[in-house]
Amino acid sequence: MSANAISRRDWLLSERPQSRLQARLGRAYMTWRRFSANRLALIGLAIIVALLVVAAFADLIAPYPPTVGDLRQGLLPPSAEHWFGTDDQGRDILSRVIYGSRLTLYVIVLVAIIAAPVGLIVGTVAGYAGGWIDVVLTRITDIFLAFPKLILALAFVAALGPGIENAVIAIAITSWPPYARIARAETLTVRNSDYISAVRLMGASPWRIILRHIMPLCISSLIVRVTLDMAGIIITAAGLGFLGLGAQPPLPEWGAMIASGRRFILDQWWVAAMPGAAILIVSLGFNLLGDGLRDALDPRGSRQ
């Protein structure tokens, strides 16, 4: 078995891969080795995996329903029965935090899916095309960057109406500009390199060069940035929830839970502290993961 394992490792690290698949897996394995050498990054990954598992199996894990409470059991402190205590409506906070993980994931995944590609396309096109296209796209980006993120999100939600979907849209609209900036900067550094010139000399169209040769180079720094931004997105979503503009009651959104707990923060601290701790841990997880990814995906590091 161990001999088998060693040969598999050699196969992955082979200097002379025999197939496309082996080359790709070998590269992925090297990235993983760099990533896993960083213990904090592994902790971050564990937190995020735990979040995914909790969200996927919320029905099975949660001891009580998240939205139905027993008013006679309101504001109970943490105990064997209710590990995180109960809130003013008598709902089990642990169950609400567990179900809330779904909402959190929903927000960050949707924001990432909307904002990252928009930023990537705007940035690479602006960087590669140059000229007036660059000027127009960069100015638009700058306009969005000029507003504080939460204020802009607040304005959009106020216009669109409260609700979690609108919160997602508002956050996505406010988070793409930094990605466009990164992608543009990255594009500017590679657009005049010989390997891009070589592809131009093949007769490749600008779109082909952007999509197949420049974007893959921007994606790793973008992944890192998006991962590091996840914490900010969670906090913005929680902030909107806290102000009553995000998820609406009785949805167990973490920010909204803190908002409802603030009335009892001195006497029944657990009502606000538990979802707060959840936000803290998940944000920390994304930050650690992002730092680890930065070291692992850095193309400058992969040369040696």
Binding site: D194, A198, V199, M202, H213, P216, P299, R303
Partner: peptide
Amino acid sequence: GSLHPRQTVDRLLAEPLAIH
């Protein structure tokens, strides 16, 4: 500097063939 850092030799050589 003239070879794409993220592409295998196979990909580098296949690209001009695909374009044409």
